[in-house]
Design a protein around this nucleic acid. Structure first.
Lengths: 259, 259
DNA sequence: GTACCGTGTTTCACTATTTGGAAAAATTGT
DNA sequence: ACAATTTTTCCAAATAGTGAAACACGGTAC
């Protein structure tokens, strides 16, 4: 879900571009092919308008018309989108560390980057659970709740404290909703070098995260572990936390030597 | 606009949409942030035009202006693109191939995806023979034992070798439990292009699998055949194996389409 | 058979949208 | 301080995109 109340920006947006992208989004989200009329209704556009936009998208390679007279998204958007991830080829660097964490914990391992007041998972290793989609990646979580998020936040707290102040949405009874408590938590996080989420986003789901830094000190990503409470005891938590820290520091270290 | 001796037939393409997407593509490909003028030059657009498009893309969440006055792609296109993968109904794409395999073999046909150190079957065609193998749709199997699993594993062996090393659970006396023998088997699998399970998971049940790849080379699924030993002889095995390979390659080919 | 839905597609006159150029801010370099 | 970049704003002009209506086609009910 997009972060509702943006400021009263209201900058003029090219309507053709906007409509075209909205169509593309709908097509991408849809599992079945869509017809012109159907899309027109759903997006509140004219049939002819929808038709032309669709034909443009086909021409540009982002959609294709299947069989006859229905449309679907191609993989082009996926391919283009992949390049944005590849350009921060963190994934490759972090993979071995993520595998290490997976081996010693058996839990879900995340690689996350900041995205406004959320984190987005750009890579993930599943724990052994029933699968829900081909691509576990791409998920979001609020930055003030989860381990990876809090690790990123701590590295840049002053920059986001204000924005966060009135947006500490509650998800569980453990969620930190007071800015004073968050201040304290961030301070602790910085001191210990990794972040702990005591079930602040999903009930009974704990997570731990540590920050990956660029050579210039910029916090670029976080690596983390997420696990159900019942799988954990104090000793295990301690072990996982230090492993997470080691993993993040290792990636940071690799980034230190270019080439 | 003197440029664009734009190639072939050219159905009329909404130029705003086209320009916007081209900007997005350039941003996605670029590893560093881009300025307005730079982009304008590269795409042969007016500065003001580029600027407005860029602002629209920001407004729509596909780009963002970093620091000040330079632009970069966000992760939104990646996220939207991921949905096309999830909604790629692999099942539908692979169905004809699975039916083909069913017809020529009469055995159980599986479509499987990786899930940690297991495979999960997301589709299945039952055997038409009286003697049936008993893995139901939605079921799991260890990745190092079955045809589909070994096909997926081979495509990504280095990533899982370590984790698997001490988890080569024995299920039958044919199960590969030594990492050295698995190394060899994976090498053979890669060389021949499909995987063979000599009854390594269920006694007397053989299975064969080949990998389905995304355009970027990612192994996303595997297609396979499972059959009781007694139904098979060398010739028949050979025939089924090459059919499995053909089937998987065909699905991979269908995915290649865009770009 | 015909009359009536519902699709996707084409055409066309109109005007709202996008456009380029010029000029104002803002930033950077010397 | 000045010049040479940049990014951003403004606005008249017209083109590029728009909606409505019409067309072609395929079903379905009668």
């Amino acid at each position: 879900m997009p972060d509702s109340s943006n400021t009263n920006s209201a900058a003029r947006v090219d309507s053709t571009l906007s409509k075209g992208l909205r169509i593309l989004e709908v097509l991408a989200q849809s599992d079945r092919d869509r017809g012109v009329s159907e899309l027109a209704r759903e997006l509140d556009l004219t049939k002819s308008n929808t038709f032309r936009l669709l034909r443009s998208l086909c021409e540009l390679g982002y959609a294709e018309t299947t069989r006859d007279r229905t449309y679907k998204a191609t993989l082009k958007m996926w391919q283009v989108g992949l390049q944005t991830i590849d350009n921060l080829n963190l994934g490759e660097l972090a993979r071995p560390q993520m595998r290490m964490l997976s081996e010693i914990s058996g839990e879900a391992i995340y690689l996350a980057v900041q995205d406004g007041l959320n984190v987005t998972y750009i890579d993930k290793i599943e724990s052994t659970k029933p699968i829900r989609s081909f691509t576990p990646k791409g998920g979001n979580a609020p930055i003030h709740c989860v381990g990876t998020g809090k690790a990123l936040l701590a590295a840049n707290y002053s920059a986001y404290r204000e924005a966060l102040k009135d947006n500490l949405t509650r998800y569980t009874d453990k969620t930190i909703t007071s800015i004073r408590r968050l201040d304290q938590d961030m301070q602790d996080t910085i001191k210990r070098g990794f972040a702990i989420d005591h079930g602040e986003y999903r009930d009974q789901i704990l997570s731990f995260g540590a920050t990956i830094f660029l050579p210039n000190g910029e916090a670029i990503a976080a690596i983390g572990v997420s696990a159900p409470n019942i799988n954990l005891d104090q000793a295990r938590i301690k072990k996982i936390c230090s492993a997470v820290k080691v993993a993040a520091d290792s990636v940071t270290g690799q980034l230190q030597h270019p080439g």
